[in-house]
């Protein structure tokens, strides 16, 4: 909030310095985020056939189509399932790995590197090998069989396919969140645990009452990064399921990509982009509002 005390000159200088500091970022956002978004909004009011080279104003026609499109509710459902599943699985796995690596063990550097390594592996290679592993006679099921579990036909059933695309994405990127959690864990003062132990708190209580509140800022950061990542999946779905079986793994970004780039409905694709933008906007505001609620150390 602006400072309205007596030394107003200093505060005015602050305003100027502040604007100068954020100017590159702000101008960049205007030019490379908001200008393109404005254009997308403009395209969404048109029927644009790239091949026939026609570009006609159709008003709200694409939006009417959006409301009538029987795929949209299914796509939104799949998107919600995917994003929630991804965030929950990613954050809990990252936390588990970080806690395990935070035990004073020799060789954690090796494990840390191994868990991080998929982050740098080519996405295409990564997806192809997982495509193999997830076959019904593939590596995952062979492994499950050794412990007496009959694995599902991963990529050919609705639930299995959703679990698969989430899992493939999580294993690829969880290393980043793990590293951030690990750093946060190492920053929790040891004395807090000592004190809690003296009070007779168990391991779980210590985790829930001390660790989690202390690292809540990192949880916020990683959840934002992960939600953003969940909106960028593409190659995984294209290679593994093509949005199937049925439409069970057709998430919004994939559907948008299909409509605009594969089916050549640029106008309708732009309309779906606008829908995505509205969702993103709501999510951003929501996350921003909630940060005070669940982040322990809000400055």
């Amino acid at each position: 909030m602006p400072d309205r005390t007596t030394w107003w000159t200093a505060s005015r200088r602050d305003h100027l310095v502040g604007y100068a500091f954020v100017a590159p970022q702000l101008l960049g956002s205007l030019l490379f985020v908001f200008l393109p978004l404005g254009l997308v909004l403009y395209y969404s009011l048109h029927e644009w056939n790239v091949l026939a080279d026609t570009f006609e104003f159709v008003g709200g026609e694409n939006y009417r189509q959006l409301l009538a499109d029987p795929n949209v509710p299914k796509v939104l459902g799949a998107t919600a399932l995917f994003s929630v599943g991804l965030v929950v699985f990613n954050l809990s796995l990252a936390m588990l790995l970080a806690v395990l690596l935070n035990q004073r063990l020799r060789g954690t550097v090796v494990f840390r590197t191994l868990f991080f390594s998929p982050v740098v592996v080519s996405l295409v290679a990564w997806t192809i090998v997982w495509g193999f592993l997830l076959q019904s006679n593939g590596g995952v099921n062979a492994l499950l069989q050794t412990v007496g579990v009959e694995g599902p036909n991963w990529l050919r059933t609705g639930t299995g396919a959703m679990v698969s695309v989430i899992g493939v994405q999580v294993f690829k990127n969880v290393g980043l969140n793990m590293v951030l959690f690990l750093a946060a864990l190492q920053g929790v003062p040891k004395e807090l645990y000592e004190a809690a132990r003296m009070d007779g708190a168990g391991a779980w209580t210590r985790f829930a009452r001390i660790t989690l509140p202390m690292i809540s800022p990192t949880v916020l950061l990683t959840s934002i990064i992960t939600v953003a990542g969940s909106l960028q999946v593409f190659a995984q779905i294209a290679v593994l399921t093509q949005g199937g079986p049925g439409t069970s793994t057709t998430v919004l970004v994939y559907y948008l990509y299909q409509q605009a780039f594969q089916f050549h409905h640029f106008g309708y694709g732009a309309t779906l982009s606008v829908l995505l933008f509205v969702i993103v906007l709501a999510l951003t505001v929501l996350q921003w509002r909630m940060r005070r609620r669940w982040v322990f150390l809000e400055a």
């Binding site: 502040g18 954020v22 702000l26 997308v40 990509y257």
Partner: peptide, 28 residues
Amino acid sequence: IRFRGSNALFLVILVGLLIPSEVTIVPL
């Protein structure tokens, strides 16, 4: 730095975080 509208500006910029590149690639 305290300057007028800093929170609102930050929120505006934050929107870009969640925009997939597929959305803006054609206009860009």
